[in-house]
Computed example of a mutant assay.
Amino acid sequence: MEVLGRLLAMLAVLLVGTGLRSSGALNDARTARLNATAYYVALPALVFVATYDQSIGDLLSTELFVGSLAVLFATGAIAWIAYRNRLSNDRRSVAIIQSYHSNLGYLGLPLVAATFDTQVTAIASVILGFVTLVQLPLTIVVLSAFGAAEAAIGRELAALAKNPVLLALIAGLTVGSIGVTFPGGVVVGLDALGSLALPLALLCVGAALQIDADAVDFEAVGSVVALKLCCMPLLAWVVFSALSVDRATFTAGVVMLGMPTAVSTYVYANELGGDAEFASLNVFATTVASVASLFVLITLLG
């Protein structure tokens, strides 16, 4: 019941963000400031605190790396086959990317940190790092292959090099590997900032969601929800079981890869010729439906 209560609270905060945006209380400028606080302050603090006392060798295993990427590419391949002869090009590209592109930063890591122990959170931070480095360029390539807009892969990769969350991950793993200690007060302060990551992220995600009920293609949206929230975590469960990873790695891998579609996919669809309205619907649907799917996953994982 505690897990269900936490997930329902997550949904409530998400819908509060949507309501504040609809009422005008959370306008573009305020949403941008809220987003910047989450992106540049809360999330990096959460990542650093989760990894600063851990060695990278204890967190990143070959099985975790290979398994995560195998699940990512397998889900993408299944989506490509499923949509190969369906939908228009602009919708097909969006359906494919939103079947595998997970919301690892804004929802995944904060939720794991709020639900599981520090070891699982640290491994989830590492998953956030290397999976982001793969799924983002892959998404740009897929959208560009179907769309009319040219890919800005170089620009996006340059932006990744300055990503504060990834920089915090590198800093945390470096500090953990060389054994530097930090004063307790600093750690407590960073931990307090990191605890703001989930509510801030949920408000930002809620404010970014847009939905036009009259334009919903229930079959197409339902198939994306099924691939993202059912197929992908099931594949993760099978792959990590086959690789015989330890319990913390298994938990972090399955939960992180079971996250809903990232809000950023809507942004990239809008920039690179995808169906932005369809992308927004899928983000909304997978995010809301993830309350049920994550409850099942977290309950099964204990």
Rank of each mutant, 00 (worst) to 15 (best):
L198C: 13
F250G: 00
V283H: 01
L229C: 13
A197E: 09
A269P: 06
V263F: 07
G189L: 12
A220Y: 03
A285V: 10
P233L: 07
F250L: 14
G273K: 07
V224C: 06
A279D: 09
V205S: 04
C204S: 12
P260F: 11
A248Y: 00
P233W: 09
F250V: 01
T251Y: 00
S280P: 04
L202V: 09
V238I: 15
G253L: 02
V188Q: 13
F284K: 01
A215Q: 13
M256C: 04
V238G: 02
L234C: 11
R247E: 13
C231M: 14
G273L: 02
K228S: 05
V254L: 04
L193V: 07
L203S: 03
V224H: 05
L257P: 02
S264G: 01
C204R: 08
S241K: 10
G258K: 03
D191C: 00
G258P: 06
P260S: 05
A236Q: 06
A236H: 09
I211C: 05
A252W: 00
W237Y: 15
L203T: 05
V225M: 06
L281D: 11
S264F: 15
A236G: 08
G273Q: 03
V225E: 03
G274R: 03
N270D: 14
D217G: 00
V205T: 13
V188P: 00
E271N: 11
L235K: 10
S223A: 14
L257G: 04
G273I: 09
V267Q: 12
F250E: 06
V263C: 06
M259P: 01
W237D: 07
G194R: 03
V221Q: 08
L234S: 12
F240V: 08
L281N: 10
G274A: 11
T265D: 10
G194I: 06
T251S: 04
L227M: 13
G194Y: 03
P260N: 11
D214N: 04
V254R: 02
